[in-house]
Design a protein around this nucleic acid. Structure first.
Length: 427
RNA sequence: GUGGGCGUAGCUCAGUUGGUUAGAGCGCCAGGUUGUGGUCCUGGAGGCCGCGGGUUCGACCCCCGUCGCUCACCCCA
């Protein structure tokens, strides 16, 4: 279990994002930032690790994540921290700590860590982007948060996404339902699947989520969550459903949808991609958490949010064959210098200060070699500096996208450089 | 935590019933006379064949272990 001798590599279940993949990531994140901005959210950056209590009290000590998937560690002063396993708890902790004016709308993009066996669409470090709204329980906010996710997925080109939605109820009605469910499970415990036959009493709601036939049969015949909502919760849920419907967002009610964290109340929802085979088809999810701020030691404040896994969004995009380019980051100019006196450096600096994206070759390679690099860089223009140009105070500009080699370049005085480039790039 | 598949150059992969200097394509580097890219041609660099042990005269190939990758179960993003 040591790393001695073996070549260093990224830890199990983690990966480096580089090359074309990083451009896709950059585009995805930029797109989300744009949507968050349009919807009135501001970016929040909070610590990657928190006092372990933030997560234990947040997502629930009985949840699988808290029990066996968290990266917990002690620092040199023996404080116990955990790497964030999800995005919401930290944001709510920050809300409690700083007490910003409400409603408070924050968006984030962050790594999340869970100690699990990796497989397709599941990693020990994955990345989420999401939003949280605190300080209001207006159903219009539920609708807005879901709509943000929905419109974002649309912008990514995803078409095979389904929205599943449920209401967990609030305090009393939820607790009442759990009691009924507990009674039902208790008298049918022998019929449950192996795992839940043993564990149902720890967290009865989880049994609803079990996909095994045995558990399904038992829960089908038992109490149903939607039948036990109080009048207020029912009205809230109806307003959410109506609001979505008014926006043309179709939601499928799923009474079994309880989600993995204990903090959810009322609205819960999940986005699944029908293009992804296998179990990792949830590309996003979220819900309302009206007690979480209190659980983290703050004043009562309602909240709702959603998070989406970047890796799974990309998986879904690939599965759907989406070719859409989200972000173009082509270079404007590539500078080739064969003068031997590094004439490129001040030119490159001048052009970058003028706002152009500029790169150059290094190591004094041959003009042919530098031109090949220029070609591969994707730059629109190449600037050539050789002994001839140097002697005459000139520079040669070549349009790399012009197929006609003989007519693709011209030489002019260095003092006319920026003006000529501006003109050329306009075309 | 449990099970299946796989680990040969930077990447994708060949490698004949175990037999001598381990190959290809792509990429990379250098050339193809006079300072110029995308096609083409030539040459070159680059591999403890994941790691350790075993069987054998001899192992990339067979056996065991180990590490890693991958897929699935569980759960989730």
């Amino acid at each position: 279990m040591t790393s001695s001798g073996a070549p260093l590599q990224a830890p199990i279940g983690t990966h480096d994002v580089l090359g074309p993949a990083s451009a896709e990531w950059e585009g995805l994140i930029a797109t989300f930032a744009q949507f968050a901005y349009r919807f009135g959210f501001s970016l929040i950056i909070s610590p990657l690790f928190e006092d372990v209590a933030v997560f234990n009290r947040g997502i629930g000590e009985q949840s699988d994540v808290a029990k066996k998937e968290m990266y917990v560690f002690s620092d040199r002063s023996d404080r116990t921290y955990a790497l964030r396993p999800e995005g919401t708890a930290s944001v709510v902790r920050a809300f409690v700590q700083h007490q910003p004016n409400t409603p408070w709308k924050a968006w984030y993009v962050t790594p999340a860590f869970r100690y699990e066996r990796p497989q397709a669409g599941r990693y020990r470090q994955h990345h989420q982007l999401g939003v949280e709204v605190l300080g209001t329980d207006d159903p219009a906010v539920d609708v807005e948060v879901i709509a943000l996710a929905w419109r974002f997925y649309e912008a990514l080109g995803l078409r095979k996404v389904r929205l599943l939605i449920n209401s967990m109820g609030h305090d009393d009605c939820r607790d009442g339902f759990v009691q009924l469910l507990r009674d039902h499970l208790s008298s049918n415990a022998s019929k449950l699947c192996d795992e839940h036959g043993r564990l149902w009493s720890e967290n009865p709601l989880r049994v609803l989520d079990c996909k095994k036939e045995a558990c399904r049969a038992v829960t089908d015949s038992g109490p149903q969550l939607p039948d036990h909502l109080c009048d207020e919760c029912r009205e809230h849920f109806d307003r959410v459903l109506n609001g979505l419907s008014a926006l043309g967002i179709s939601a499928t009610r799923d009474p079994r949808l309880v989600r993995g964290f204990d903090y959810y109340t009322r609205t819960t929802f999940e986005f699944v991609s029908d293009s992804i085979d296998g179990a990792q088809n949830a590309i996003g999810g979220g819900g309302r958490y009206d007690k979480l701020a209190e659980q983290l030691g703050g004043k009562p404040a309602s909240g709702i949010g959603f998070g989406s896994g970047i890796e799974r969004l990309l998986l879904a995009r690939t599965a759907e064959g989406v070719q859409q380019v989200l972000l173009k980051r082509d270079l404007d100019i590539f500078v080739v210098d064969t003068t031997g006196v590094d004439a490129a450096t001040p030119i490159v600096d001048q052009l970058r200060r003028a706002g152009y994206a500029v790169d150059r070759a290094y190591d004094g390679r041959s003009m042919k070699a530098q031109m090949k690099v220029a070609d591969k860089s994707g730059a629109r223009l190449a600037l050539l500096l050789g002994p001839q140009e140097l002697a005459g105070g000139q520079i040669t500009m070549k349009d790399l996208r012009n197929d006609d080699f003989s007519n693709s370049q011209r030489t002019f005085d260095l003092s006319d450089l920026v003006a000529n480039i501006a003109k050329q790039l306009e075309e």
